[in-house]
Design a binder for these strands. Structure first.
Length: 486
RNA sequence: GCCGCUAUCGUCUAGGGGUUAGGACGGGUGGUUCUCAGCCACCAAACCGGGGUUCGAAUCCCCGUAGCGGUACCA
């Protein structure tokens, strides 16, 4: 494997603004970013928007937002649609040197050519039929109103492709065809603009997904025809769905959108850590990496060759890890927008200490920040349902059992009402004293009370809940539950 | 169809001519506990197949097979 060239590293992430930033794009951005930072180089964001029909400003904005959220910051930025004159100049050069030519193929003709090629099991379809037109023929086509495309001439010598991850190989030019480099509407195409900009921007390493592997020899041909320096390539394997297929907007919708994970309460640190391990590993010991550590340790040589499946369970694990890492103040800050979004909290936040108390009570139970909503809504409202399954199991499904539960709840209510100080220790002692004296199973009493106060059979320590809810609220909810039981 | 890439537990992966093939996620079992989560302990789980080379192959080579990617006037 080749060593990194001594010159200053310059890499780029070149998304097309045709949708949100997706998981694969985020990983490509990260790999580029880490590689740049590791080598003290420059990370460039280049918007490849030569497809004017599909590119949108909204998409561009979302890509910026997602990258910023992930703290993948770029040092320089370019937008290809603003660089038309540069590409036009190179196209003229190609035309003049005879390395490219106008092609007057109609869409119908192209379709027919492709059909034929397939039927004949040919490797390439377009046969270069417009390569050498007489001036008369050109005139005729122009008179017909045909708008030509520009095609690059594929030479007949083998093309060597070096890849830092996949190794080197020679491409038989017979497997390549004269690619369209300028559309009939005059807009240059990806293969052209990409390799020109890589040279213009002095990109040293092109790190991109393997879906671009087959574009690489075409781009090398263009660069060679233009006398441009070719960057080193590193094609990183694809991010796959659980069925082993490439994750794409087309097939997976916003399941692949980085923004969606942000909205669901995933932390950027978790996303970064998750995504970097899709194809890259350090050793057999470490799973958790901070960004600084990644910058220090990231290396193209440790990127694998095969695709990696996106495993949401692993992401969830990482996310809970990073949430648990937050102290309660930071965790509260992180969670407040989710309470607000759910309408449990208005903009004025209110009693900050109380909120932090809730967050502390919830402890390590959050997988995503959004989990705070279902797990704590009962703190904000008593308009919850008593979970039927829990009711059946802990409140009882016979009249005798329900009577018994009513008795327990009534007793506890009384105990709590008469308690001298409403704090955890005192309450705990009083309840245990009660259950021990009456020979009631702790779990039975606690679960009965838990359901009365929260509607559910699971959650944080009940004593935390009781104290956080406060005496008044607890003494309101117990009778309500008893009534429900009657 | 054609061109290309890839192949270790379900998943992410480490390793790599001689290992009980390691870790993590997920799963399972037990313990702790007022429930859940967590934590602790333990368990199951893999080198795609066939040929070579070799004393020895999961590892190197070849051939298959399978999967995936590309096959646009998208990127």
């Amino acid at each position: 494997m080749k060593k990194v060239a001594p010159e200053t590293v310059r890499v780029r992430m070149a998304p097309s603004p045709t949708g949100y930033l997706h998981i694969g794009g985020a990983r490509t951005a990260l790999f580029n970013y880490l590689f740049a930072k590791h080598h003290n180089g420059t990370f460039i964001l280049r918007i490849d928007d030569t497809d004017t029909a599909r590119s949108t400003d909204a998409s561009m904005q979302e890509i910026y937002d997602s990258l910023k959220w992930l703290s993948i910051n770029w040092d320089e930025q370019y937008i290809q649609s603003e660089r038309r004159n540069i590409y036009d100049r190179y196209v003229s050069q190609l035309l003049e040197s005879g390395n490219a030519y106008h092609c007057y193929c109609t869409p119908e003709e192209l379709e027919e050519i492709r059909k034929q090629a397939r039927a004949n099991k040919q490797t390439r379809s377009y046969d270069g039929r417009y390569r050498d037109l007489t001036p008369e023929a050109v005139q005729r086509f122009v008179a017909e109103g045909r708008k030509p495309t520009v095609r690059i001439k594929i030479p007949d010598t083998p093309i060597r492709v070096d890849d830092l991850i996949l190794g080197s190989r020679n491409i038989d030019p017979a497997t390549l065809e004269d690619e369209v480099i300028v559309r009939s509407n005059g807009m240059p195409n990806y293969n052209l603009t990409s390799i020109i900009d890589d040279a213009e921007m002095q990109i040293t390493h092109v790190i991109r997904g393997t879906e671009h592997l087959n574009n690489t020899p075409k781009q090398i041909v263009i660069a060679n025809a233009l006398g441009l320096k070719v960057p080193q390539f590193a094609h990183i394997p694809l991010v796959l769905d659980s069925g082993g297929r490439k994750m794409s907007k087309r097939h997976h919708g916003d399941l692949v959108a980085v923004n969606r994970y942000r909205e669901q309460g995933y932390l950027p640190e978790a996303m970064l850590n998750f995504v970097v391990r899709l194809g890259w590993s350090y050793d057999d010991k470490q799973e958790i990496f901070s960004v600084d550590e990644l910058i220090e340790k990231f290396d193209l040589e440790r990127v694998g060759k095969s695709g990696s499946v996106f495993d949401i369970k692993k992401l969830e694990w990482l996310n809970s890890h990073y949430i648990n890492q937050l102290d309660s103040a930071a965790r509260t800050d992180a969670v407040i927008p989710f309470w607000q979004e759910a309408g449990l909290l208005n903009n004025s936040i209110g009693d900050r200490d109380w909120l932090e108390g809730i967050v502390e009570a919830v402890g390590e139970r959050l997988t995503t920040l959004q989990d705070i909503v279902p797990q704590t809504s009962y703190f904000f409202t008593d308009a919850f349902e008593y979970e039927p399954k829990a009711v059946k199991k802990w409140w009882g499904n016979s009249e005798e059992k329900r009577e018994r539960t009513r008795e327990i709840l009534t007793n506890i209510s009384q105990i709590l009402e008469e308690i001298p100080t409403f704090d955890i220790e005192t309450i705990e002692a009083a309840i245990w004293k009660y259950t021990d004296e009456k020979d009631i199973k702790r779990v039975a009493a606690m679960q009965a009370l838990r359901i009365a106060l929260t509607g559910a059979s699971f959650g944080p320590s009940l004593f935390d809940i009781v104290v956080l809810l406060g005496k008044d609220e607890v003494l309101k909810r117990i009778p309500k539950a008893i009534e429900h039981l009657t």
